[in-house]
Computed example of a mutant assay.
Amino acid sequence: MTSTPSPVAGLLLAAGGGRRLGGRPKALLGLHGRPLVEHAARTLHEGGCSRVYVVLGAAAADVRVHARLTHCTLVDNPGWPDGMGSSLRAGLAAVAASGARAVLVALVDQPRVTAAAVSRVLAAHRSGAELAAASYDGERGHPVLFARPHWEGVARAATGDRGARTYLREHAAAVTLVECGDVAGPEDIDTPEDLRLLG
């Protein structure tokens, strides 16, 4: 008898206010006529995440109105101005109440991350990896997967805008890198020049 893989929740960090974009919340940037947050959440679903949690912050009310996220669990992070770390902590706390045994974390401002990349990282977990990350030409990127035993340590290390970076650096030897450069890209949208990625 084969065992059923433990469910993996998707965690989409979408709370940023787009300070370097002139205060345009990244979740509401348009991609193919729809909000970017919608595209990112769909990517996680199509890649195989059992349930997607979306952390909202800047313009959360507008995101709820304009984005079709009825298939997601929405998590409000009132502390979003403190940086990505607060959103990661809020998201992990929400996912902890579920039956998920691992969480796959993605960022809303990386439109070239694909369902294929999500699927590859999930496959690494099904093969036994407790820490796994997409890599691009050998460089670690997103999405990143954490099995449940790591959540407490990740949350403790997530401060400011560092997110899980410190934790991943401290546990680098245990991270399975999954090359995704042939099916996805790591570029993120931080400045007005980066908006070309939405074209």
Rank of each mutant, 00 (worst) to 15 (best):
L36N: 02
G185Y: 08
G138V: 12
H150D: 14
D190K: 15
G17P: 04
A132C: 10
V118H: 00
G23M: 09
R101T: 11
A67I: 05
S86F: 00
R42T: 03
A93Q: 11
A15G: 00
E179I: 04
P192K: 12
V105F: 04
G83F: 06
E139C: 15
Y53T: 00
T43F: 08
S6L: 12
A173C: 02
A133C: 13
R120V: 07
A164V: 11
A90I: 00
S127E: 14
R140V: 11
L88H: 04
W80L: 01
D62A: 10
G57Y: 06
P192M: 04
S86C: 12
G91C: 08
L13K: 00
L88N: 08
H39L: 09
A132Q: 02
R24P: 02
A97G: 13
S119N: 12
T114N: 00
H125G: 07
R42M: 07
C180G: 03
R101Y: 09
R34A: 13
R112W: 13
G33R: 04
G33P: 01
L107F: 11
A174N: 04
S87C: 12
P78H: 13
R156W: 01
A90Y: 02
C49M: 09
G10E: 09
L104R: 13
A115C: 11
A102V: 06
L92K: 08
V118M: 11
L145Q: 11
C72S: 07
R165P: 03
R42P: 00
L21D: 06
V65H: 10
L36K: 06
P186I: 01
L131N: 05
L12Y: 02
A96W: 13
F146M: 14
L12W: 03
R34M: 05
T191D: 15
G160D: 10
L168K: 11
G22E: 03
R20K: 11
R148Y: 01
V118Q: 05
A106W: 11
L44G: 05
A96E: 15
S98P: 09
Q110N: 10
R156C: 04
K26I: 09
L195T: 06
D76W: 03
G181C: 05
C72D: 01
T43W: 08
G138W: 03
G163I: 14
G99R: 10
R19Y: 06
W151Y: 10
A117Q: 04
G10S: 08
A97E: 15
A106L: 13
A173K: 15
A147L: 13
